[in-house]
Amino acid sequence: MIRYLYGAELRSYPALRDAMHRDRATQFHDRLGWNVNVDENGGECDAYDGLNPLYVIWEPAPGVHGGSMRFLPMDGRTMVTDHFAGLLDCTIDSPLIWECTRFCLAPDATVKVAGILMLAGGELMRGHGLTHLLGVFDARMIRIYNAIGAAPQVLGSSGTGRDRISVGLWPYRPTDRLRVLRRAGVSSDVSELWFRRAFGRPVTPPLVA
């Protein structure tokens, strides 16, 4: 299932939390060779994990991490404003834009998992009235985003080759949802249920007679 969990809530899911940090270490430290902190348990963690961000985690079986990403609203402290402001022409401080970082897939994850995470990102925008998501990603992720039909609008990049890091925007488009659901292989009802479990209200408000 897709879990939407705040940092403070992750305490209740230690196996899932640790698996996520381990897979992040595998992806960002081992595979991409980024200069990130890996702790003594082999998990990758940074300062933004301490800001009580919202995590979206794909949990294919209890305690198993299939893929995840992390959100912080742009009107507060974010990785983009701290480190990548130079890549942007303007400051972005809208409460209706959330930053998405540490988009991570488990080593054995299929491209479908990326589709499931994109679905969750769309549900967050729809359910919380956001206008955009803002992401920081590397060149490889752009290929994955293109493959699942969710190409971001790139605002700026730095570096070259596989070290190239970009900042991009995904606008909220209501018409994308059906296509994203189909690609993720998840029904609308199931996605609604996961969202409601986390936030206590529906992602689509029911019509009142």
Binding site: P95, L96, H128, G129, T131, R201, P202, T204, P205, P206, L207, V208
Partner: peptide, 15 residues
């Protein structure tokens, strides 16, 4: 349901 409809419709303005 009325409240869900209200918050869904207006949350962007409210934020």
């Amino acid at each position: 349901p009325e409240w869900d409809d209200f918050t869904g419709t207006h949350q962007r303005d409210l934020i």
